[in-house]
Write a protein that binds this DNA or RNA. Structure first.
Lengths: 120, 120
DNA sequence: TTGACACTTTCCCATATAGGCATATGATTG
DNA sequence: CAATCATATGCCTATATGGGAAAGTGTCAA
């Protein structure tokens, strides 16, 4: 099998940096494709493709406005991600201590194996 | 080009569900590969490969313990993700209002176009 | 109708994946 | 030393990607 589709969930959708940038831009309000493409320095078709992915996972919605199509943010799909990652909050502080423990282990291991059994 | 490597950053690394499960398991403490593979119902080589990815992005670290290699969580790399997603926190509540606006738009559009019955 | 915009989709390609399986590496013990 | 356990890597394949270019759809204005 290949990697899961980018459209399979928000996790996969936001793994792409340019799509994250699009979301950031959309925090400023609705925007047409061309503007997004210009601001992000990508081709307009490419922007459309990224927006399609974001739409399919529900992070973005479209609204026709004359000849334009205005894309808007729907951030609700980001909440599960925030929650999941938040489940590790206590660990990214605690980890420093564990790392310290780890370093102590290394030191001790080196101390217990000075030069016997040596080369290769 | 193809999709960015899974090892290019934590965003890509955690896009894979099984890797997320591994991280969750590791919250319970250090574990050898075989145990992780068993608990997640995947083959040992597959678990090793996932762990390699997680190690390359720094979400996991290894420590030799006899013939075993104990994998441990290093959640610090998740913090940037939490922060980035957190930047949308105000929006996934506000979005309901905007959606409402959107729905109003739809209603009005329907009212101006002679389709079938009325609504409420 | 025609034309001009604003987008979207299709086609092409190089690349990297996840997974299954076989095999290699590493460490420990006899 | 060899045997054995624990883990890593190599090889294979199907699949999906992001990107460029080109062609298709939709909407408005004259």
């Amino acid at each position: 099998m290949a990697r899961a589709a980018t459209t399979s969930d928000a996790f996969n959708a936001i793994a792409e940096p340019q799509r994250r940038e699009i979301l950031v831009l959309l925090r400023g309000g609705e925007r047409p494709v061309t503007e997004l493409a210009r601001d992000l320095g990508m081709s307009q078709p490419q922007a459309s493709k990224h927006l399609r992915v974001l739409r399919e996972v529900g992070l973005v919605r479209v609204r026709g406005a004359g000849k334009q199509r205005l894309y808007g943010l729907d951030a609700r799909g980001l909440r599960p991600i925030h929650d999941w990652v938040g489940g590790f909050e206590e660990f990214w502080n605690e980890t420093f201590d564990r790392l310290d423990e780890y370093v102590q282990d290394l030191k001790q291991a080196r101390r217990e194996e000075p030069t016997d059994g040596d080369d290769q």
